[in-house]
C-alpha cells in the first residue's frame, strides 16, 4: 500500500495537537487511575492530618491529665483504658499524632533544606565545594545514623529541638547525595549551559532551570525520608531517649505500656493496648510508602496520556 506524500512543512510535523490540560485536571485524571493501594494511602494520610490539626477538639481529655485509676481497662469512659499513671490512652494517641508527626515533619523539612541546597550547590559548583561536602558526607554516612544520633543525644541531652536538629543534620546527608546525583544529570544538559552562556546568575539557574526538573525524585524522596525520620524518632522515643514525658508520643507510649502485653491471655484488650500506638506508626508509614510507590511508578516514564 502506498500513501500520498504531502509537501513538507515545519508546522505540520506533529500530527496530533491536543488541548493542554491544567495541572488540576491532569492530577485529577491520574488520581482516578491510581491503584487502590495509593488511594488508601492518601485517605489515611489525610485522616492523620485532620487528627493532628484538630487534636484538642477530638480528644476527650487533656494530654497530661492524670486520673486516679492507673491501668484502667477499656471502657466507655476511657476508650483504650489508662496508662501506668492513669492518663487516658485514647487522648494521648490523638495528641501523639500532633507531636510525633509534627516533629517528624519539621525534621524532614529541615533535612531537605540543608541537604537540598548543599546538593544543588555542589552539583553546580563541582570544584572544592563539591569535594569538601561529598567527603564529609561520606564520613558521616560511615556511621549508622541511629548510633550517631545516640552519641549526639548523650552529649547534648534529649530535648525536642536537639532531636530535630540532630536527626535533620544526619538525614540531610542522604538528601544531599540524591539531590547532587539528580542535579548532576540536569547540570550537564545543554539548556543549563545555554543559560550560563546567556549570563544568568546562579540563583536563576538553580530555581528556573534545574529545580523544576528534579522535583519528582525529590518529592518521592521526601515521602521516604519522612518515613525514615518518623521511624527513627519513634525508635529513639521507644528507647526512652527521644521525646520526653509528659509529651504524648507514640514511641514512648509503647514503652510505657509494654508490660501490659503479657496480660493478653487474661484480657486480650489490655494486651493490645501497647500495640495501638505502634500500629498508628506502622499505618502511617505503610500509607506513605504506598503513595510514594505509585508516584515513583507514575513519574518513571508513564505519562497520563499513554
Amino acid at each position: 500500500m502506498k500513501i500520498k506524500t504531502n509537501i513538507y512543512s515545519a508546522l505540520g510535523e506533529v500530527s496530533s495537537v491536543y488541548d493542554r490540560r491544567s495541572i488540576w485536571t491532569r492530577s485529577l485524571i491520574s488520581l482516578r487511575k491510581a491503584p487502590y493501594t495509593a488511594r488508601f494511602g492518601m485517605v489515611i494520610i489525610f485522616g492523620y492530618m485532620l487528627v493532628a490539626i484538630f487534636a484538642p477538639i477530638l480528644a476527650p481529655y487533656g494530654e497530661a491529665q492524670v486520673f486516679p485509676k492507673p491501668y484502667a481497662p477499656w471502657s466507655s469512659d476511657y476508650i483504650f483504658g489508662t496508662d501506668q499513671i492513669g492518663r487516658d490512652i485514647f487522648s494521648r494517641m490523638i495528641y501523639g499524632a500532633r507531636n510525633t508527626v509534627g516533629i517528624a515533619v519539621a525534621t524532614t523539612i529541615l533535612a531537605f533544606l540543608i541537604g537540598g541546597v548543599l546538593g544543588l550547590a555542589a552539583a553546580i559548583n563541582r570544584s572544592w565545594l563539591d569535594q569538601v561536602l561529598s567527603r564529609s558526607v561520606d564520613v558521616l554516612m560511615a556511621i549508622p545514623s541511629l548510633i550517631f544520633a545516640l552519641v549526639l543525644l548523650s552529649i547534648f541531652g534529649s530535648t525536642v529541638s536537639n532531636l530535630i536538629i540532630i536527626i535533620a543534620v544526619l538525614d540531610s546527608t542522604r538528601v544531599y547525595r540524591l539531590t547532587r546525583a539528580v542535579s548532576l544529570n540536569v547540570v550537564v544538559m545543554d539548556y543549563v549551559e545555554a543559560a550560563r552562556l546567556r549570563g544568568e546568575g546562579l540563583g536563576w539557574i538553580m530555581r528556573r532551570e534545574i529545580l523544576p526538573n528534579i522535583m519528582p525524585p525529590l518529592i518521592a524522596e521526601f515521602g521516604l525520608r519522612f518515613c525514615f525520620v518518623f521511624l527513627t524518632i519513634a525508635a529513639l522515643s521507644f528507647l526512652g531517649i527521644g521525646i520526653q514525658p509528659p509529651t504524648a508520643d507514640w514511641g514512648s507510649m509503647v514503652r510505657e505500656n509494654a508490660s501490659l502485653i503479657m496480660f493478653a491471655q487474661y484480657d486480650l484488650k489490655a494486651g493490645l493496648t501497647p500495640l495501638l500506638p505502634a500500629a498508628a506508626i506502622a499505618l502511617l508509614t505503610v500509607a506513605i510508602n504506598f503513595v510514594v510507590d505509585w508516584f515513583l511508578h507514575k513519574t518513571s516514564g508513564l505519562r497520563d496520556d499513554q
Binding site: C227, L231, A234, A235, F238, G251, V254, A258, I261, P274, L275, A278, A279, I281, A282, T285, V286, I288, N289, F290, D293
Partner: peptide, 13 residues
C-alpha cells in the same frame, strides 16, 4: 512494602 514500614518494636510486640 508493608513490612518495611513497620517499626521494629511493632514487629517484636
Amino acid at each position: 512494602l508493608t513490612a518495611i514500614s513497620f517499626p521494629e518494636f511493632f514487629v517484636a510486640y
